[in-house]
Structures are given as structure tokens and as C-alpha cells.
């Protein structure tokens, strides 16, 4: 509602003064945000779209405009296509396992237990650590601690660093992400479980529903909004994976663990393919925007159905 109009009736004596002045002040409140948003968000976004059509290496004084050449080349670039496959495979592994374990833990942590608060704070703790530190710690653990167990027990596959192998490195990174990332979806599931009304549970108990029946018909409907929120966050987080890669494999061995975000960084900052990297970034942007958009559409429908 318009501030000046709404208050006009009761503040007659100051009407015109308050009206224009109020409108001006409201506008001024938005100015710092608007300026920052244009200069430091929209402008870089536009710059990216422009650079993506050049062959700029990132520091030369001159560069050429090449139109859509980068975009076409990227579609035939095995390194980029591999990074897309890697990222989506990684996202699938992590999202499925993370949300499943988070849900199981949430169910256990919602039971009537004396030490519930204690367990919750322990299980949540990893969420406050930084991805880079967790990545580096697990990197060291994979590099030195696991192999030492493997050697002591004479287990061959455990004696080697799984991050050093092209086909197993992805699981090492996924495991790290799961260890670190379970906490947030877990507390969100706990909030969902707490939102199930008590009388509904009691009613189903009286009706003689088994615990499993009760879970599917009473609890699940209340968990669906939480599941959608967790899916949105987990998918976006894994499709943009970067810190763990830098900390644990640096894209290796032999480019096997290059995620999309990591490849953009490599091309733009280290391999002097700045224009090319920004074009890759635009592809990633479009992919993630479409996925988030679809998810939010579904989320809204689900919530509407809920109410």
C-alpha cells in the first residue's frame, strides 16, 4: 500500500508534504542496494556475456570478437563434457546418500531420548566448519591414515590413496561432502518431523496403524516440503562443487575430478582462456538456472497442494 495515500486521511495537515517526502525517503532507502546490485552484480554478469564472445586470454591488451565460436567449441570439448558428466554423477551420488542418511538420523533424533539435545549438537557440528578445511583434513586422512590401516590389516584396496585413482577419487570427495553436509538437511527434516500434529499421531495409533503405516500416511506428507527444500539446496550445492575439489584432488588424477565450476576457474585464472571460461560459465549458469526454476515451480505446487 502507498504510504502517503494510506496515512493521508488521518494526517490531513501534513498531507502533501508527508506524501512527497515519504515517497522520496522510500526511494532513497533503495538507492544503496540498487547501485551495489547494478555495479557489482548485473554489470559483471553482462561483462561475462560479452567476454564469452571474445578470444581474450585474460591479460593481453587486445583481443578479438569471435561471436559464438567459444559456445560451439565447448560443445565439442571433451574436457568440458567430462566435467559436466562428472558433476552430475557426483551430484546424484551425494544428494541421494546425503538426504537418505539425513532423514534416517532425523527420525532417530526425533525419538524420545534423554540425550537427544547432546546428540543433535554433535551431529550438527560439522556444518559450522569450512569446506576447504574439511576437504584438506579428509585429503590428509585418505592420503596417510586410511592407507596405514590398510597396510596394518593387509587389505590391498585400503592401502592406496583412493583419491589417487581415476575411478575411485569421486567417491572420496563424495564421502567427504556427505560427512560434512548431512547436518543441515538433518535439522530441516527434524523441523519437519516436529511439525506433525500430535493428535494426528495419536489418532493413527488408536486406529491400530503399524509404525511403518503411520510413517507413510501421517509423517511423509509433512516431510514433503522439507524434502523439496533439501533437494533444492543439495542439488545447487553439489552442481557448483568447488572447494572440495581444490582441497582434495585439484581436478586430478588426469582431469578425472574436474567439476564444472573448477574447470571455469582453471580456464579463466590459470590456463589463459578467459573468454572461453566465461562462455563455459554461461552454459553452467543456464543449466543451473533451468534446474532451480523447475524445482521452485514444483516446490510451489507441492506447497499449494499441502495447504
Amino acid at each position: 500500500m502507498d504510504y502517503a495515500n494510506k496515512t493521508g486521511g488521518s494526517a490531513q495537515k501534513k498531507k502533501s508534504f508527508a506524501g512527497n517526502k515519504a515517497a522520496l525517503i522510500f526511494f532513497l532507502l533503495t538507492v544503496p542496494t540498487l547501485l551495489l546490485y547494478i555495479v557489482f552484480f548485473l554489470l559483471p554478469l553482462g561483462m561475462g556475456a560479452y567476454y564469452s564472445m571474445t578470444d581474450w586470454d585474460g591479460f593481453s591488451l587486445s583481443y578479438r570478437f569471435v561471436g559464438f565460436k567459444n559456445y560451439i567449441d565447448i560443445l565439442q570439448d571433451n574436457r568440458f563434457l567430462h566435467s559436466v558428466r562428472f558433476t552430475f554423477l557426483y551430484a546424484t551420488i551425494v544428494v541421494v546418500l546425503k538426504l537418505f542418511i539425513a532423514l534416517v538420523l532425523a527420525i532417530f533424533l526425533s525419538g524420545k531420548l534423554k540425550l537427544r539435545g547432546f546428540f543433535r549438537s554433535v551431529y550438527f557440528f560439522p556444518a559450522v566448519l569450512s569446506m576447504i578445511t574439511v576437504g584438506l583434513i579428509f585429503n590428509q586422512i585418505f592420503y596417510s591414515v586410511f592407507p596405514s590401516i590398510g597396510q596394518a590389516l593387509g587389505i590391498d584396496w585400503l592401502s592406496r590413496n583412493i583419491l589417487g585413482n581415476k575411478s575411485t577419487a569421486i567417491y572420496g570427495i563424495a564421502l567427504t561432502n556427505i560427512w560434512h553436509g548431512i547436518a543441515t538437511p538433518m535439522v530441516i527434516f527434524i523441523a519437519g518431523l516436529a511439525s506433525v500434529p500430535k493428535d494426528l499421531k495419536e489418532a493413527s495409533l488408536i486406529d491400530g496403524a503399524t509404525p511403518l503405516q503411520r510413517f507413510f500416511s501421517v509423517t511423509i506428507p509433512f516431510l514433503i516440503p522439507m524434502l523439496t527444500v533439501n533437494l533444492v539446496m543439495a542439488i545447487k550445492g553439489t552442481l557448483t562443487v568447488f572447494d572440495y575439489i581444490v582441497a582434495m584432488t585439484d581436478g586430478g588424477p588426469a582431469f578425472a575430478t574436474e567439476s564444472m565450476g573448477f574447470l571455469i576457474y582453471k580456464h579463466g585464472m590459470a590456463e589463459m582462456k578467459f573468454g572461453y571460461g566465461t562462455a563455459e560459465a554461461i552454459y553452467v549458469f543456464v543449466m543451473i538456472a533451468i534446474i532451480s526454476f523447475i524445482q521452485i515451480k514444483i516446490l510451489n505446487r507441492k506447497e499449494a497442494g499441502q495447504l
Binding site: 546490485y37 552484480f41 559483471p44 561483462m47 557448483t240 564444472m260 566465461t278 560459465a281 549458469f285 526454476f293
Partner: peptide, 16 residues
């Protein structure tokens, strides 16, 4: 802006 992942603007931000 929610739809724009950081990596989409990472390189231009460095330049800018």
C-alpha cells in the same frame, strides 16, 4: 539473483 550461481560471475568479477 538466486538463480545465478557464483561461478557464473566468478571470472568477470575478478576482471571487474
Amino acid at each position: 539473483g538466486i538463480f545465478v550461481p557464483f561461478q557464473a560471475i566468478m571470472l568477470p568479477i575478478y576482471r571487474h
